[in-house]
């Protein structure tokens, strides 16, 4: 993978292992994220796609600062993010969680919720300034001013998520991690929030790391897509190329499994990639490629040897033995 000098965030060989006790005296780990490298350029929207247990949220939380890496490093604008992050880093990297019901304190008003980041990062602000800024933030996410006095319990799920986005914007961040921000919402509300997020990204020159399990959604927002399976990246590619020419058998299976609403989309689904098998437990993974048990094209080699990332096209990397000889398309 070539390094990008314009990268705002560089994830290098990141490992996140969680101990889960011992078996036969050997400490056991869940390898939630295993040797993942990913660069995110300034102003880019990178989509991180994976099913449950793929480690996508763990990866996002590590970038946000919730977990310490077991190995590897995360660099923000060239600075390694260590154990203690400075306030400037906390100001620059923000996160929006999946469940707006749990990410807003039910005992606070929206005003109090939006004020907190201001109080921490701009302590010089007066009360009036803060109030003005809160109104401004609410306007940014298209909520009326009067919502300042509402409690999260009294507003709808979509509105709660908008408030959570407003909170993330409060500190003027550069990078926002969006952890499935719309997966708990109906599509009509999702559309509104996604469009708003895209607009905000343009206006405020933001960089997004967008996590989702919804590939159709990803197609419409991300510039680049990365697929995570059992803690490892399987394929990284520009969105257009990713959906037109998916290479990895897992990606193909994923795309062909999506229920779609038009024949045009149906035509994009790879043929002969019907879903089979189960996602194995991330504890005690079999040797070789993590996907070989579900892969129609698996060979003896896939059962013994884990493939490594290889470029197959312009910015398009795949981690699969099928492409080991450099045979691109």
């Amino acid at each position: 993978m070539q390094t990008d000098p314009a990268a705002i965030l560089r994830i290098k060989n990141l490992k996140l292992y969680f101990p889960i006790g011992r078996k036969h005296g050997e400490p056991q780990y869940v390898k939630a994220v295993d040797d993942v490298s990913l660069d995110i350029a300034k102003g880019e929207i990178v989509g991180l796609v994976g099913e449950s247990g793929s480690g996508k949220s763990t990866l996002a939380y590590a970038v946000a600062g919730m977990f310490q890496p077991t190995g590897g490093s995360i660099l923000y604008e060239g600075r390694e993010l260590g154990k203690k992050r400075g306030l400037d880093i906390k100001k620059s990297i923000q996160i929006v969680f999946q469940d707006p019901g749990s990410s807003l304190n039910p005992q606070h008003t929206i005003q109090q919720i939006l004020e907190l980041p201001l109080k921490i990062h701009q302590p010089q602000m007066t009360k009036q300034d803060r109030e003005r800024r809160v109104k401004e933030l609410l306007n940014m996410v298209e909520l009326p001013d009067s919502y300042r006095f509402k409690s999260p319990a009294s507003i709808g799920g979509g509105e709660k998520q908008m408030a959570a986005i407003a909170r993330a914007l409060a500190t003027d961040p550069r990078l926002i991690i969006l952890d499935e921000p719309t997966s708990a919402l109906d599509v009509s509300i999702q559309a509104k929030i996604i469009n708003m997020l895209l607009k905000l990204q343009q206006q405020n020159h933001l960089t997004y790391l967008f996590i989702t399990h919804d590939l159709s959604l990803m197609r419409n927002i991300a510039g680049r897509v990365a697929i995570l399976y059992l803690g490892k990246l399987d394929e990284v590619a520009p969105a257009e190329d990713f959906f037109r020419h998916p290479r990895h058998p897992y990606t193909q299976m994923l795309i062909s499994s999506i229920p779609v609403i038009s024949d045009e989309e149906e035509a994009l689904k790879p043929a002969r990639a019907e879903s089979q098998g189960e996602i194995p437990s991330p504890v005690n993974l079999p040797p070789g490629c993590g996907f070989h048990q579900r892969c129609r094209q698996a060979t003896g080699r896939c059962r013994s040897e884990d493939p490594v990332m290889r470029p197959v096209g312009e910015g398009h990397d795949v981690r699969c033995h099928l492409f080991d000889d450099g045979a691109g398309a």
């Binding site: 600062g65 906390k90 996160i95 969680f97 990410s103 304190n105 919720i113 921490i120």
Partner: peptide, 17 residues
């Protein structure tokens, strides 16, 4: 473990807060 507490920690709120 609620996300609002985690969020407050992530943006750097003090422990008493």
């Amino acid at each position: 473990n609620e996300y609002y507490v985690i969020h407050a920690e992530l943006i750097g709120a003090s422990k008493p807060h």
